[in-house]
Design a protein around this nucleic acid. Structure first.
Lengths: 231, 231
DNA sequence: GAAAATTGCGCAATAC
DNA sequence: CGTATTGCGCAATTTT
């Protein structure tokens, strides 16, 4: 099979979507306002529109117009139980994982390379067929065909190498950002403690002064109008 | 070649170490206290000890004792310019990357599987041969042979699938931890502002009271002893 | 539109 | 033995 994407089960309706990451992104970003069933069904209509028949449509590697005719659909169901963006919106346990729930294997198959013998990177592991959690639908867009690029080509290697460098750089940046945030949090916590202490000191001073003033004024018994401000 | 590990250049001395990640970890953890040249050379002696001749020693897949005889050495140099753990310890730019420096491609090849046709996962990209930054040595330990496991075996797939689940779980946890830290930092920042404001208020109150007291005492000209405390 | 950056994922080494 | 972490490359996607 040359399917690209994931099969999902939305309120009992099995669907196949290309581009698992898109779905994941949408899920991650929107998992806190799930659509209603009617919204889902309307979106399904929109989605199914270009492909009224649910038959397979083989990928056409030579098609050049990306937004043109349909060229990639497979109704083969692929397991996809993401569960990450769907863990209840109430912070979960924040310390440990949920009960036995979740992190079930999920398989996505890739387009095999067109010329090379193909390093089957995302190999299909177990062929489980369960669909569990409800799912957010991705924004609707017709699947586009990839430009077929030989994995042996120098251009491919160049692209890969450049991307690898970018990935390392990006992750390094992320690591530093995380570290910085942690340090900032610690710093703020320290500062908070100092500020709390200072507030304590000032409050005590205020109490002392108020006490002194009250002692001065109470025995004298008059002029209560110009008293201690209580802002 | 069936080499596993990375080649590094330490003060001009080219070495090959197995397990790139070990080196990376050591580098990350220790990059702020680089060893002296004498330390390095003694470590090199220790490292070279089991292998006085620098010839290739072929991997023996049937050897069962992990801590037993030497079974994995290759002096083929593999490019390794990590540069991540070596970015100056002064926070760098904290916003953007350094100048043209770093993130050069780095290649590590893996043991090919013994029975399966072998998915060449970590494929060798460009065959650059440059060695640049000085490097921390890993803790010395004789390389151990991996138990040869067929990639087709059900056990392998089981292990992989379990690890994949663990990985997803771990990353989910990390994501939540990061989010939590960010939120905490924001929260602390808000709290800080409030505290600062409160300190401002209290200070102003104090000033007012001090002013009042000074007004009361200065015109009367005496009894300066029981004055305003200046804690 | 193309290059760079980001991100989910699986793999393998390793840490625990 | 196990699970948990982590660096890495890949590919899909997003950002610039």
């Amino acid at each position: 099979g040359e399917e690209v994407g994931v099969g999902v089960d939305i309120w009992g309706i099995k669907l196949f979507f290309p581009s698992p990451q898109t779905i994941y992104h949408q899920t991650v970003n929107l998992y806190d306002n799930l659509p209603t069933l009617s919204e889902v069904s309307s979106v399904i209509q929109e989605w199914m529109n270009p492909y009224p028949n649910q038959a397979h449509v083989t990928l056409n590697p030579t098609s050049s117009s990306p937004a043109g005719s349909s060229n990639l659909v497979s109704m083969d169901m692929i397991t996809y139980s993401q569960s990450q963006g769907l863990r209840g919106s109430s912070e979960d346990r924040m310390d440990e994982q949920m009960m036995g729930l979740s992190y079930l294997p999920y398989t996505s198959s890739c387009l095999s390379s067109t010329t090379s013998s193909g390093n089957p990177h995302h190999n299909h592991g177990s062929n489980l067929q369960e669909f569990s959690p409800p799912f957010i639908l991705p924004t609707m867009r017709a699947p586009v065909a990839k430009r077929s690029i030989s994995k042996d080509s120098a251009e491919y290697r160049l692209r890969r190498e450049r991307n690898n460098i970018a990935v390392r750089k990006s992750r390094d940046k992320a690591r530093r950002r995380i570290l910085m945030t942690q340090q900032r949090a610690l710093q703020l916590q320290e500062e908070n403690q100092k500020l709390q202490m200072k507030i304590g000191q000032l409050s005590q001073e205020l109490d002392t002064l108020r006490h002194i003033l009250s002692q001065q004024h109470l025995p004298g018994s008059e002029e209560g109008a110009a008293g201690v401000p209580t802002v």
